[in-house]
Amino acid sequence: MGRYVAKRLLHALVVLLAVSVAVFLVARLSGDPSALFLGDNSTPADLVRVHHILGLDRPLYVQFWIFLSGALRGDLGQSIWQAQPALQLVLDRLPATLQLALTAFVLSIVVAVPAGVFAALRRGKAGDWGVIAVTALGQSIPVFVLGVVLVLLFAVRWHLLPPSGSGTWKHLVLPAVSLALFSSAKIARLTRTSVLDILGKEYVRTAQGKGAGQRRVVWVHVLRNAALPIVTIAGLELGALLSGVVVTETIFGWPGIGRLAIEAIAHRDYPVIQAEALFVASMFVFINILIDMTYVVLNPRIRLGGEGEA
C-alpha cells in the first residue's frame, strides 16, 4: 500500500507540474499585463520599467521558475484587482463553495442510491420506468436551466425561497438542489445498473434460496458488492460538482470560488485566475487519489500499482 500511495503521489506531482506549466503559458498568452499599471500618457520608458518590475524582461524559463518556486511556497502573487494575495482570496471564498458542493453531494447520494436500488428491484415495472425517465431528464437539463426554472417557480412565483444571496439555510436550498440534480441522476442510473448486475449473480440467488429475506439480501449481499462502481462515480461526481459551482454560484449570487473566477476574469486579474486554477486542480488530483484508495480498501483483489488505468 505504501509503495502504491507513493507512486500515486508522484504521478499527482507530475500532473500538477504540467497543470502549472499550462496555467503559466495561458496567462502569458493573454497579453501584456503592464497595460493594467500604465496610464494613457505613459512613455516607452515607463513600459520598460514596469516590465522590469514585473520581471517580464527575463527569459521565459526564468519567469516560470520564479512562478513555480513562489507557488511551492504558497505565494501565487498579488491580486491586481484587490490588494490581497491571490491565494488568500481563493481560500476566503472556499468555505462557501465547500458548503454548497458538499450539501449537493450528500443530497445526491441520499436521493440517488435508494432510487437506484428501488428501480433495480422493480425492474421493468412502473417504478423502474419512473426512475429511468426522471434520471434521463435530470441528465439532460443543464444546471443553469434548472436553476433558472427553480428561481422562477420558488422565488418569483411562490415567494417560498430567496432567489439569490447567502446566509441562511433557505439560501442554500435552490443552489444545492440545482447543483445536485445532474449528479444524482448519474449516480441513480449507475446504482440501478450495478444492483441489477449483482442481482443476477449466483451468490445472491444462493442467499435468496437459503431463505434470506429480501431486505437482508439487498443490504448485505447486493449493496456491498455494488458499492465499488458507486463509490467511483460518486467520487468523480464530487469533482464535477466543484466544477459545476461556477454556473450555480453565478445564478444564485453565492459568494464562493466559482463566482470569484468569473469576477477575476472580468477584471483580467490573472494572478487570481492562476491561483484558482492551480488550487482546484490540486483538489481534483487529491480527490482522485482518495477514490483510488477507497477502491483498494473496498476490493482487496485490485492489483496495486499495476499497469494500465491507474
Binding site: V15, V19, V246, I273, A277
Partner: peptide
C-alpha cells in the same frame, strides 16, 4: 494518456474560462 490525465484533472469550465479570458 498522460496528456489526457492532465486535462481531466482540471475542471473543464474553469479551464475554458481561463483560455477564453486569454484568447
Amino acid at each position: 494518456m498522460r496528456i489526457a490525465d492532465v486535462q481531466l484533472s482540471v475542471p473543464f469550465l474553469l479551464l475554458a474560462l481561463v483560455v477564453i479570458a486569454a484568447v
